[in-house]
Design a binder for these strands. Sequence first.
DNA 1: CTGAAAGCGCTTACAG
DNA 2: CTGAAAGCGCTTACAG
Lengths: 347, 347
Amino acid sequence: MADANNNGTGKSAARGASGTFSLYDIAKRAGVSPITVSRVINKPELVSAETRARVLRVIDEMGFVLNRLASSFSRAASRIVGTVAPPIINFGIAEQVQGMSDVFSTSDYQLLVSPGELSGDHEGRQVMNMLGWQPAGMVLQAFSESDAMRETLRARGLPVVEISEIFGKEPIDCVVGISNHEAARRMTHFLAECGYKRIAFMGAVSHGNDRATRRTLGYRAAMAELDRKPVDVIGPLRASYAADGLRQILALQPDTDAIFCASDTFAIAAIQECQRRGLKVPDDLAFAGFGDLDFAAIIVPALTTVRVDRYNMGSLAAQTLLRRMRGEDDVPRVQDVGFTIMRRASA
Amino acid sequence: MADANNNGTGKSAARGASGTFSLYDIAKRAGVSPITVSRVINKPELVSAETRARVLRVIDEMGFVLNRLASSFSRAASRIVGTVAPPIINFGIAEQVQGMSDVFSTSDYQLLVSPGELSGDHEGRQVMNMLGWQPAGMVLQAFSESDAMRETLRARGLPVVEISEIFGKEPIDCVVGISNHEAARRMTHFLAECGYKRIAFMGAVSHGNDRATRRTLGYRAAMAELDRKPVDVIGPLRASYAADGLRQILALQPDTDAIFCASDTFAIAAIQECQRRGLKVPDDLAFAGFGDLDFAAIIVPALTTVRVDRYNMGSLAAQTLLRRMRGEDDVPRVQDVGFTIMRRASA
DNA sequence: CTGAAAGCGCTTACAG
DNA sequence: CTGAAAGCGCTTACAG
């Protein structure tokens, strides 16, 4: 049977082996020059319909695939956009990448996602790595924010869009995101408007970026504005912390009537814990989350939460980068995509 | 302020602008030839410690990043491994990619993830696209399985590992996965052993691959072995279908005492629907799922489900591809990673 | 241990 | 509308 695709031929296969042709092979077969073939692929409008049809037929017949390595490497402007995904790809990140990719797939840029490493290595290495591909621009998903890396990028003058907290560090270039402080502040006020009197907060430890911290501060700011005493606990961002956090909060303030969780994961897990304890949600204890995971609307009671449109963030980041790469000079440096408070049954 | 990283300079920035040096610049500064610099980076053991140190210092000083486009393009064997992510990146896929990436990051291969397109386009285009980067191998995540694409890949003789149903189509090259038929069959028997008498099945419509179908068939096979009448409904793989599916099953067989869902999403949503209806889980109705999403263990009652280690699948796929690319001739064509039945409270 | 030459497959100017 | 020449930044042989 087809030995070519079986084991033991790794050597030749590694370089594409059979079925790989160059522009020259196509050109010869079609009776034109290589540049003409290049034009048929990249700028078909510059080629006569007749020639184009002929070349296209040959390309098809021979299953020719343009060597993008060579294209990008030649003096042409790079059409690569790089992004580094965090070592743990959660659903939100996946949606962001989706938003980016849907935009780039209708442009002539190719999005390259380099998966982040788990190893303790400084992620500066990841970015340098990506830089080696000579991208025309990068999208940073702000899962870590080493200053050295930021400086390197700034020094290069490469178009960069960060998806991040908009009031965080001085942007490298452009930022798309939300104010986590404001979102948490608003949700806290919202809970107060719902009539809850003793609103506690379950926050997450900061994790390579200051989103978590800003949410905590937003909650405290709102409590100060309401002239109430803040009651907050902070734990690792894992579902397993929720039961602990709940216990701590109830120890701190036994008559707590609402808990605002800095993540849906906390909120969903805490609600399940309430069920285990026989506490009724929202009657005995109300809950609000942050993020609007898909399960937030599915659980009973459905979760009241802060919705941030991650797909939209990714999409706007991509559009912004496209404008920067085209050299437009009126590209906004900071864009707030905002948030929505989704009121459901849990509060 | 730093005009170089501000708007309006997109043109020059697009090519790296300042801060970008070539091997030649480093060589001149270090007083060696370009090849020596190349060796310091790629085969440091071939360079004297003294020379190496000097070159390394210059590289560091100048912030030099090797142009990977040029490296990969030059006659060197490509060190790129390509994979196309499905248009909808779910958690399982993310874990798979993680498993792959953790393996490749300790090799000298660079994993390139090209996000799948939403557009109705045949994904053959995606793979062709990827091929343009001249990868030394590819991992296919089997979210669609166009025969034309499979043929193209086979014809090229490129090392390919599919993460897929192991009893699906004739593998292009190597396959890593599970038998969905067997997993569904086993879970059905497990429910029977738990004492459930009328076990129904909520399945998903096939979606570019036959995993879903095989689970349905596995359920039916088990029911036949048990000499019981299968009761199954099939719907789109969305949480919103669960309420519908539940209604249909109860209409078909009102005294159903257990429902095996072909996905955790179905099961979790259906359990929530039971709560809404006042049905007790598992006393009135038991549930089992498939997949072991992270929320499966968190909800109350925790979900009994089939666990497939997606991280491990990705990791094994990567290791297998590495062996294929090295030309080893005893690489297994089909590898079953198996599954585990996680018994929790819901059944 | 170090280096000079050739070439990977394209695309950008520059001609016609 | 089409083409001949030069070059992108590396690495692989081949020398020494």
